[in-house]
Design a protein around this nucleic acid. Sequence first.
DNA 1: GGATTGTGTATTTTT
DNA 2: TACACAATCC
Length: 742
Amino acid sequence: MPDTPAAPYLAGLNPEQYAAVTAEDGPLLILAGAGTGKTRVLTTRLAHLLMTGRARPFEVLAVTFTNKAAREMVHRVEGLIGQSVQGMWLGTFHAMGTRFLRRHAEIVGLKPSFTILDTDDQIRLVKQVLQALEIDDKRWPARAVLGIVQRWKDRGWTPDQVPPSEVGDFAGGKTLRIYSLYQERLATLNACDFGDLLLHCLELFKRAPDVLAQYQRRFRAILVDEYQDTNVAQYLLLRLLAQGHRNITCVGDDDQSIYSWRGAEVGNILRFEEDFPGAEVVRLERNYRSTGHILGAAAGLIARNRARHGKTLWTEDVDGEKVRVASLWDEHEEAIFVGDELEALQRAKKRLCDTAVLVRAGHQTRAFEERFIQLGLPYRVIGGLRFYERAEIRDAVAYLRVVVQPDDDLAFERIVNTPKRGIGETTVVALRKAARAAGRSMLSAAEELVGTDELPTRGRRQLADLLAAFARWRDELPRRAPRDLVEAILDESGYVGMWQADKTPEAQGRLENLKELVKAIEEFESLPAFLEHVGLVMDNAADADGDMVTLMTLHAAKGLEYDYVFLTGWEEGLFPNQRALDEGGTKALEEERRLAYVGITRAKKRCTITYAANRRIFGQWGAALPSRFVEELPPEHIHHLLRSNASRPDVDPTFGVTSLFPTGKMTGRGPGFERAGKLIEGKAELVRPRPAPTVAFAKGDRVFHDKFGPGTVEALEGEKLTIAFDKSGVKKVMASFLEKKA
DNA sequence: GGATTGTGTATTTTT
DNA sequence: TACACAATCC
């Protein structure tokens, strides 16, 4: 602790935090466990560097992964230093890349006005490349090809740098050729995809060492958030930039590395001391978020991973409640259970915004949403389609892109027939061909051809009108206020009218989103400035406020915290996810385990884990086993919940443990399973639901199904039976949902 | 050119 | 099951 009166912003730091904040020059790695004040330390260190004069604002480079994190950082640093962060380079990796490239575009063969493509554009481009190479995009989907190319870019490889051993035989071994062609197309379009924003920077610094040297001299302080999420390209970039003053501070937690599937390399954080010799390492292990039992459960679980720095989180907080584990019949029961628990919390005057339900995969939210709607529990789903990914927003933005950048072929193609103007595939293909042949944009080719017989007559008139409209809007661009102009464009193009005429229920929402977009434009000086923002900021427009339960994936929950957390669907196959395991083996299992760790450590006061005995996967019902992670939780920190009406638990000979499910009535909705069933503390150490019981059925048996009523068995096929229901016709159902009638 | 039917597939997601 | 995409028909 400081012996001299410390600056006020240093007050209240614990010794490790203080050490991290005030560490001397040189490489510094801050290993910050969950809930140990990571953001606080990073922002305070930045403030400290400024306040002590070790760096001036324009000598600081601070990078984050998301715009949200960047905003948060700006906000907190400004709060600490009491002035604006003007002049500082504080933003996402991609924003940083964009900034470098706009300044030095020519060096890598771009024009400074290059456009940034979104995923949609990228896929369309890959499709074009596949077509050009006559590759069946049914067998080798563009999305998958793009994935491969992106992973290469994440590793910092341009087409000529991809090692032959990495090429593989996907798309008939032509992936590398696709990559080259894709890059060529991007160059012609004067466009970058997200990977290029970093990759081109590497190329830029290689080609222009003087430019690199200039930035190396400039950035006296480099700070990196969430270092465990960096990919190789980002790492290489950081290493280059840090070679000047070697003042690089990286904050991260190897135990929270959950993005390897999109290129993140845990190795970067594990190797830090080798990459930056002489690096100081500070561990933040005191947790300020969770109670003792929650922390203990999380620590016990993550200790099973091998590839980690190893930290021991501790807290001075009370032990609190043990982590609760509840076993349910199926996803409906699970949703009913969680809904009941949330209502109980509500009755106890807890706020719903302090609660969260986390799932492994997006589709799992559905069952919860349905139940919450039934109960009238307000909820919000994080993730899903983000604002700028909605079709109407992308369409609107495409119009603006064409106005600002007439050469933007992808945008042009997107809206040339939206709303429908009778400009079909034939016309578009003709335009594309003409444009390619003449080496110009489609819009200019259209202007040239619209008066000739080269194009189908059908939409010629409308195309001419559209071109004239674009010319007019472009003409007005410098004179009209952005908001005004955008409203005019959306109106005169017929785009708003298209949605007004649409009578489907979602049209109203789409119109509102468009209004939202127009409002967002007001904050920008010009349309180009706005588009630059849109290119980079693909995040959720304004989180809805109000007292609601939050539903989201485990990935989306990283960095957040809630008093009451429900971790659902802890079943083998779902979590850990089978597909991940198939693809990535032990490494993937460890990543899934980190995901579980992230989940548990989101909880401040109470953590509840649930799993179901039956789950529908791809429309098929199947018996599920509890996740291995359930067993890995240290018993002293957990507490199994049993339904009070399961007072006569059956002993399952297979596992030698208690089963929650009494034989006989297995539907979870029958008399044995009333919702009134209160939860009591269980004695069983391990509760395993058994595979669905097989009551022998025979052809011709009379059966009863809770939903479909009485029927007759027509055919048997293992657990699946074909039943002719008296009222609902012939259906295939699982044996476990049937009751045999005498 | 647009609506309709059929087929195949099916994590996690930011920029 | 449920959705997206493509071939097919009008």
